[in-house]
């Protein structure tokens, strides 16, 4: 009787444990494809390709030859014209990081972060000591602006569909409007529901 009771309790514990919400830590580089939507693996592949294309592009050597110093880049906006919500920041940050770590390209802050920086500078004008306050008008001007777009083509048929994402990044000379580099990455998937 005692044994049956113990077994019953053990079984119920096991059953309850199996129904519980479960979270497992995984390596970000091995993100599995669950729904077929854009995921971290796609972002990582895009970042790797863009870093490789950008840092080996002719624009870099041309700029160094003409100006004698490394180019300064500012990040503009990326338009997501695909059928999914995609945040470009995930792969753009990797690209920006590569610019800094390789020390081949200089990077200046843009957007809301720049606004915050300027607001901090404004605050310093009245609150910081004279020896530590940072002056206005000494920011580094960017030579190039990095802009991009994400497009997708979906071809569904019954339970199957093929999706192709195209990510394009364009680097333009701010002074001359000349496009100096275009990087692209295409990712295709076959999804069966």
């Amino acid at each position: 009787m005692k044994q049956i009771f113990t077994i019953a309790i053990a079984t119920s514990i096991l059953l309850l444990a199996s129904c519980a919400h479960k979270v497992t830590r995984i390596d970000p580089t091995e993100t599995p494809d669950l729904s077929g939507n854009w995921n971290y693996t796609d972002s990582r592949i895009t970042a790797e390709e863009m870093i490789n294309q950008s840092l080996t592009g002719k624009w870099l050597s041309d700029h160094l030859q003409q100006k004698g110093k490394k180019p300064v880049v500012i990040v503009g906006f990326v338009t997501n014209k695909s059928h999914e919500h995609i945040e470009a920041e995930t792969f753009m940050n990797d690209l920006e990081k590569s610019y800094i770590t390789t020390e081949k390209v200089g990077l200046v802050q843009s957007g809301k972060k720049r606004e915050e920086m300027r607001s901090e500078k404004a605050d310093q004008q009245t609150n910081s000591t004279i020896s530590t306050l940072k002056k206005f008008g000494l920011e580094k001007g960017a030579d190039y602006i990095l802009q991009g777009s994400i497009n997708s083509i979906v071809d569904p048929y019954k339970r199957k569909k093929s999706v192709t994402y195209q990510i394009d990044l364009v680097l333009t000379n701010i002074e001359t409007n000349e496009v100096v580099w275009i990087g692209d990455k295409k990712i295709s998937k076959n999804i069966k529901n």
Binding site: V75, G76, F77, V78, T79, N80, K81, S82, H83, E84, H85, I86, E87, A88, E89, S110, G111, K112, K113, R114, I150
Partner: peptide, 8 residues
């Protein structure tokens, strides 16, 4: 600037 404009 520095954002993803969602035009899905």
């Amino acid at each position: 600037m520095n954002t993803t404009v969602q035009n899905t």
